[in-house]
Simulated assay, not measured.
Amino acid sequence: MRDRILQAALPVIQRFTIAKFGMEDVARAAGIARQTVYKHFRSKDDLLVGVYVRHIEQLHPDAMRAAAVRAPSAANLAELFMAQLKAARSFPLFDEALDPRVAPYMAELTLNAPNLIAALEAIWIPILERYRNAKIVRSDLDLPGAVRWIAYQQFWLLTHPNVLATDDGQRAAWVKNFMIPAFLA
């Protein structure tokens, strides 16, 4: 039922916008009672985070798979970061989440959502452990903290795409030269 609700929610949110969709709209699209939606999601915010988590669980591991199997190196860690950034851009609500009226709300919502952070940890912690075992990243690196930092940096790069760089090549150089060194042994 939870997946059915999430599947119905995305087109509803796209149609009504992040700010204006309602639980009743989602219930109607899913063909269920509004109370059933509330049994699975406490609020609109919880449902919206659920939509994001579903996207992360479905697309990000595939986007990162090719880079994840390569031998651990600083360059490959930067490539993983950029692959996840690219996967985030494919999210159907991406452009709307960047709207200046919505972006601060989305940053607060997503970066403080335990289930979203858990989804990112499920992807990143095994990678960071592998890189730590290969002595690429610091042995004292707080892995959950590193995942939150990655999420914040990626959100910042996504919401301010031209502040540091004007294209992905420049962004990749920024990531390689300034962000990834924070992890390195």
Score class of each variant (00 low, 15 high):
Arg4Trp: 12
Gln7Trp: 08
Ala8Leu: 08
Ala9Met: 09
Phe16Ser: 05
Met23Cys: 08
Val26Cys: 10
Val26Asn: 11
Val26Trp: 13
Ala29Thr: 08
Ala30Arg: 12
Ala30Lys: 12
Arg34Met: 06
Gln35Cys: 00
Tyr38Cys: 06
His40Val: 07
His40Glu: 15
Ser43Val: 07
Lys44Gly: 12
Tyr52Gly: 09
Val53Gln: 14
His55Asp: 03
Ile56Tyr: 05
Glu57Gly: 06
Glu57Lys: 12
Ala67Thr: 04
Ala68Phe: 07
Asn76Lys: 11
Ala78Asn: 08
Phe81Gln: 01
Met82Lys: 01
Lys86Val: 02
Ala87Asp: 07
Ala88Phe: 07
Ser90Lys: 13
Phe91Ala: 03
Pro92Ser: 13
Asp99Trp: 08
Asp99Glu: 13
Ala103Val: 01
Ala103Trp: 10
Pro104Tyr: 12
Tyr105Cys: 03
Met106Thr: 06
Glu108Gln: 10
Thr110Ile: 10
Leu111Thr: 12
Glu121Thr: 01
Tyr131Met: 02
Arg132Glu: 15
Lys135Gln: 15
Ile136Cys: 06
Ser139Cys: 06
Asp142Ser: 10
Gln154Gly: 04
Val163Met: 00
Leu164Ile: 04
Ala165Trp: 00
Thr166Pro: 00
Trp174Ala: 07
Trp174Gln: 10
Val175Asp: 02
Val175Leu: 00
Phe178Thr: 13
Met179Leu: 15
Ala185Val: 09
